[in-house]
Design a protein around this nucleic acid. Structure first.
Length: 545
RNA sequence: GCGCCGGUAGCUCAGCUGGAUAGAGCGACGGCCUCCGGAGCCGUAGGUCGCAGGUUCGAAUCCUGUCCGGCGCACCA
């Protein structure tokens, strides 16, 4: 498909050049119109360029159309609306995609557009002060799907979790654990103001005490380290059960003191710092921030921001060509200073990219489920997984664009009825598997034959094939825009088309051996494409349901 | 006060970096079970794209202002 569209792009560029236009790469391109009645490929190149040439857009469009009409695989090229050129492709192109999906299997949709660029996706990155919650789970589902998309499009991708095991929160954790340890020894103890009151701290204290690792007399640093280690291990196993394996768990405390000191020197040497009120500031306002930021406090202790600079310098030193930070809703205020930091360090502007994974409202039958960390009554990621399952959770978290708040209806996600979109999509795959079982091994694994595909003649079959044909470009678009939810929408669309087709037309009982094989090939392509789409979302494609 | 994210059908949301008649799911209403899985399918109703300006051949999309909701604004992390 890539060679095919590249050929069309070349022809389009040639036609535009012949008319005297100088199109940019964006302008001399095609898109797949959502409306099937607008053809299979469309270009609006004539609209902006006609103006430059002083031509009526439809006239330029007609010149483009006649040039494209001659291209192989193009059945028709028509001018529409104000000056669109709509292409209708020959069926053979679409059957070719069906054959390719069957032939390439789990690799269908894969591409190498990433050219092996080394990309790091950092996500979740929670404090090691408690179990992961539903908001972390959303970020987890998002970051992992994004990483899968990047891998599938030819990027050398790594997943990283930044363990924020430094600072006030760790002190509070240590004091909270100490209080619980005292209680175990029968003493009276109080959880400090702002401390962690969750039941899990009691369990943690009990476990570490029983293992002989901690006593109420253990010093703060030891308390914090032991507690954090245990909690990180829990987070890691929760994420593993959610299907997510990180390549790197990067502990913040490993940055101290050398890397933090090196970061300070580098910034100071760069001349973007100054001293005020005995503190060291970074002039981030020179790079688009709203106010300058403190790097070193008046008492000489470095800020979290300076550690962040050190952390990103370390990422850069590790050779990543691109770094994606997925920040939670409580950190969205950091984007500006991080971007400013990149500028002031003299790194490429697009080296860092920040995506905000927004908050989640958990609903139970329309009622909001309260999530209060202070009261210790938070909804944990583990509870979400146990309550509704990994597949439903991941699918639901990826239903929306990451930047928008998400209403997550647990009751709906739990349902095993068609109103639940994850079952609807998985059922499509299971149904194809069921057909393959029914058809028998020989037919179910027969190599794609052009003659068999040529038997397909229904409009529904063409539309299904077109949708299979679209898949690689949907993948590419989702990866480029960092929007896995496009795949969720695609899976729902493909499922709907297939269920409809299945209901109205016999596949294994079609008249004629060749038609049976052709229809089964189409079904196999759909099943395979669905499996790949779900796989990129981290959702399983069951063979039975 | 400043900033970020939202405001599109009764509800939850898409809308592919400015295009064609604004779409889907759910809900509502009405249909379909001799048939490879009814965990399914078909149809109907439903919109001033928060509001007001602007930019241009063209705006849900970009700009300005404004209203509403959510969330951030430490020498905390």
């Amino acid at each position: 498909m890539t060679d095919f569209t590249q050929n069309l792009r070349d022809r389009l560029a040639a036609a535009l050049a012949a008319a005297g236009a100088e199109p940019g790469p964006e302008e001399a391109d095609f898109s797949i119109p959502p409306e099937a009645s607008h053809g299979d490929l469309t270009t609006r190149a004539a609209l902006p360029l006609a103006k430059e040439l002083g031509l009526p857009p439809r006239e330029l469009a007609e010149q483009i159309a006649s040039a494209l009409r001659e291209a192989p695989g193009v059945a028709a090229a028509e001018v529409a609306g104000p000056g669109f050129v709509n292409l209708r492709l020959e069926e053979g192109v679409l059957w070719g995609a069906v054959a390719e999906a069957v032939r390439t299997g789990d690799d269908y949709g894969r591409s190498d557009v990433g050219e092996g660029v080394r990309v790091q996706v950092e996500f979740v990155s929670a404090n090691p002060t408690g179990p992961l919650n539903a908001v972390n789970a959303r970020a987890a589902a998002y970051g992992d799907a994004l990483a899968r998309l990047l891998e599938f499009t030819g990027h050398a991708t790594e997943r990283e979790f930044y363990v924020c095991n430094v600072g006030t929160q760790m002190d509070l954790l240590a004091q909270s654990v100490r209080a619980r340890l005292r209680e175990i020894s029968g003493e009276e103890a109080e959880i400090p103001e702002g401390g962690y009151r969750g039941e899990y701290v009691v369990d943690l204290a009990r476990r570490l005490h029983a293992a002989g690792r901690l006593t109420p007399e253990s010093d703060d640093a030891h308390l914090a380290a032991e507690a954090a280690e245990a909690l990180v291990a829990e987070q890691e196993s929760d994420l593993e059960d959610f299907g997510i394996i990180f390549d790197e768990w990067f502990p913040e405390n490993s940055l101290y003191p050398d890397k933090v000191e090196a970061a300070r020197e580098r910034l100071t040497g760069g001349g973007a710092t100054y001293e005020k009120d005995r503190a060291l500031w970074l002039r981030t306002t020179a790079a688009g921030d709203d106010e300058d930021r403190v790097l070193v406090r008046a008492d000489g202790r470095p800020t979290y921001f300076l550690a962040d600079v050190a952390y990103h310098l370390d990422k850069h030193d590790r050779g990543f060509d691109k770094v994606l930070d997925v920040l939670g809703p409580d950190h969205h205020g950091h984007a500006k200073k991080l971007y400013a930091m990149v500028k002031l360090l003299g790194l490429r502007d697009d080296w860092l990219e920040i995506v905000i994974s927004q908050q989640v409202n958990l609903l139970e039958g329309g009622e909001k489920v309260k999530m209060s960390k202070r009261a210790g009554a938070l909804v944990t990621m583990r509870e979400v997984i146990e309550n509704i399952g990994v597949d439903a959770a991941r699918f639901f978290f990826l239903l929306r664009t990451p930047t928008a708040h998400l209403d997550f209806d647990l009751e709906l996600a739990r349902k095993d009825t068609p109103e639940n979109p994850v079952y609807y999509a998985q059922y499509c795959h299971a149904r194809v598997e069921s057909l393959k079982r029914e058809a028998g091994e020989a037919l179910a694994s027969a190599p794609p034959a052009e003659a068999d595909l040529g038997e397909l003649d229904l409009p529904e079959e063409r539309l299904l094939a077109r949708t299979v044909w679209e898949f690689p470009s949907v993948v590419a678009g989702a990866a480029a825009r960092r929007e896995p939810h496009r795949l969720t929408a695609y899976a729902a669309r493909l499922a709907s088309l297939f269920h409809n087709y299945y209901h109205h037309h016999r596949i294994l009982q079609a008249s004629g051996e060749a038609k049976r094989r052709g229809r089964l090939l189409l079904a196999r392509a759909v099943g395979q494409t669905m499996k790949n789409a779900l796989g990129l979302l981290g959702v399983s494609a069951p063979t039975h349901m």
